[in-house]
Design a protein around this nucleic acid. Structure first.
Lengths: 210, 210
DNA sequence: CCTACCGATCGGTAGG
DNA sequence: CCTACCGATCGGTAGG
């Protein structure tokens, strides 16, 4: 039938549909949580019935695993790229913090899911995500230890310092708005300053102590 | 019947039951999330049937609201108490950070729920919790602004600095273990040092720059 | 891509 | 504090 052929031609292709589903899941999982989101909600978001989603994906768990694994892989890749440009620990830390903050500001849905739904993720994906997280935290810790060894950074516990810096950047995902008073680059620079100061290598002078 | 009387005497009183329910909810909500936890799970945790819970509480939402409101009220009270002991911004900030870190380390279930389930909470409780959060963040921001005004702190954006310090303390709730290598007091002191250094008022010397 | 449907589970109530 | 039960909704499959 001609009408049916036109309707079929209007339908988005497989890759487009898959991307729409992923987009809807990002929004809904981050707003209502994994268990708070039904397949019916995701389907309604893109104008289909829940059962039709299964022509483009295998399961709700797979959708979650894909989001969380991709997020951690991109954060790791961002760290590698940021720290490759210099051999100076202070420069590396500043670049890593800028990349970390930028990613958390621009992918707030992804990282919120990543930070909140780790227990909603079934095995073996949960352990894979946890392993990637540990790799990321350890990379930061090693960078800090390198700076301490070279006499550039001061900290009592490099591991705590790494956790503190990571966590403070994660927080940006919870309040950043593109139309806020500060540009993303200003924020990234400011967090870089705070990170360096926290490690005793800050650009700003010490406050006078009378 | 005598057997029935003994069984009745063995049963915990109303206040005890309510506390058991709250405890089970804290554990389960923090591990599996609000929507991931069923009333049947909570009941099984303390050896009853789900329908019996309703003799001691009114609804699952009420349980969540109580947890989240109590958490924010205690954090605010802790801040007030910590900052009352001194008029020196640096001393106040150190004490506030220690209180913040201690609370997040020792009440990790409560604060995880507080940070993850805000969107699971129905109105009007959700807005009440959000208002308490804003009050808490503003109190930190004012303390930082006071320190800047008195020439003790250096920061470009007191609001960002407040968010960064709050968030880094929140992170402690995600990794602290009582049997870890560092005592809670060591961690609280270290976070106090990091906070002060981040504001250019740290106790440790700057790293040498050759 | 839809309708129809599966068994399981949800929060909560009735009644004793 | 229990059993029995309510209507609603869950993720997913069958079949076309």
């Amino acid at each position: 039938m001609a009408g049916s052929a036109v309707a079929r031609a209007d339908r988005p292709g497989g890759a487009v549909r898959r991307e729409q589903i992923r987009e809807a899941a990002l929004t809904l999982f981050s707003e209502r949580g994994y268990y708070g989101t039904g397949m019916e909600d995701i389907a309604a978001h893109i104008g289909m019935r829940a059962s039709s989603l299964y022509n483009h994906m295998s399961s709700k768990q797979d959708l979650l695993a894909d989001i969380m694994l991709t997020t951690m892989q991109r954060l790791l890749a961002g760290f590698e790229e940021a720290t490759a440009a210099s051999a100076e620990p202070a420069e590396q830390l500043r670049a890593a913090m800028a990349a970390h903050v930028r990613y958390h500001a621009t992918h707030h849905r992804d990282v919120r899911i990543g930070n909140r739904e780790i227990n909603s993720l079934a095995q073996p994906a949960q352990d894979e995500v946890k392993a990637l997280r540990r790799r990321y935290a350890r990379a930061w810790q090693r960078l800090i230890e390198q700076g301490v060894a070279e006499g550039r950074f001061v900290t009592r516990h490099p591991q705590l310092a790494a956790y503190a810096l990571l966590e403070m950047g994660i927080g940006v995902s919870q309040w950043y708005r593109p139309d806020g008073p500060l540009s993303l680059e200003e924020i990234a620079r400011d967090y870089g300053d705070m990170a360096l100061r926290q490690l005793g290598a800050g650009p700003a002078p010490r406050a006078p102590v009378p």
